[in-house]
Design a protein around this nucleic acid. Structure first.
Lengths: 146, 146
DNA sequence: CCAAGATAGATCGCGCGCGATGCAATCGCA
DNA sequence: TGCGATTGCATCGCGCGCGATCTATCTTGG
């Protein structure tokens, strides 16, 4: 039932984030996009999509909403007019300050130790790799999912 | 970054399931609903929602689509006319046969042993409980999520 | 230099996920 | 018994997530 565990846990994370992000006027995917921009400003749409595993068909409307909210700016790359670069505005950087407490608050909500979180992070990452690499990886047991 | 791990892994699961479920004409949430009905037929909308953590506003349209596809039937409960009971049709049970190989195929794709899957199942379930119970549970470490 | 192919985004349609709201049936309590 | 409160489901609007398709730009081979 791993698939359902992940499905349900993802919904639970979304609900846990909502009270923290709603005051900031952000949805959870929008917050993830901003996290990547706070880590590195002025990225192309494709680069953000590669970081989050999302398509331009998902990101373009999301980025337009964030632009309309005033937290970022979209502009064509002069070097390659196909690309669209995304840059934070001053409001976007202010938002970073206001969101500073979010990660620690969520960490608390998990009720896990740092060591547990690290271990789970590795396990989840390995599993994602296995699924992404077309399946059939390792030992493979019985019947985990239904 | 646990939040992102789960988010991204959930998307990865959805993509891994797609080639298995598309031939059956099912989406991943529809498959989850059918799993609960295959386990116990003739459940109310609310009961299915409780099992999956979903609201009637999500389930009602989904169930109507499955009904239109002919795999289940929705009808008022005679005992309590507020309730809507959901029952499998013969086509729904045939679909169960056709989906028989799905769990094992997904198990293989994870590349994990049965023991690993069991352990991760427990860890994910505990984490979901912690989030659902309003946070602040255990030791709580540093900064796992951004 | 120019046409064919590749690449980056944008657009569209559909199916969730969910908060807010509405409505009918049932329950509870005087 | 009657009437307000609760329950169970449906509806609506919005924001993803993604396959399919389109357009504009860049790249490459002749």
């Amino acid at each position: 039932m791993l698939c359902f565990d992940v499905y349900s846990l993802n919904l639970a994370f979304g609900r846990a984030y909502k009270p923290l992000l709603e005051p900031l006027g952000l949805t959870y995917p929008q917050y993830l996009v901003l996290l990547t921009l706070w880590a590195e400003d002025r990225q192309s749409v494709g680069r953000i999509g590669a970081a989050l595993g999302l398509d331009s068909s998902t990101l373009t409307p999301l980025l337009k909403r964030l632009e309309a909210a005033g937290v970022l700016r979209r502009h064509r790359d002069d070097q390659d007019e196909r690309r669209v670069l995304v840059s934070l505005t001053e409001a976007g950087r202010v938002l970073q300050q206001r969101a500073e407490a979010v990660p620690a608050t969520m960490a608390e909500a998990t009720g896990m130790t740092l060591a547990e979180m690290r271990q789970m992070h590795q396990a989840l990452t390995r599993l994602r790799q296995a699924l992404r690499d077309g399946g059939m990886g390792g030992a493979g047991g019985g019947d985990p999912c239904a």
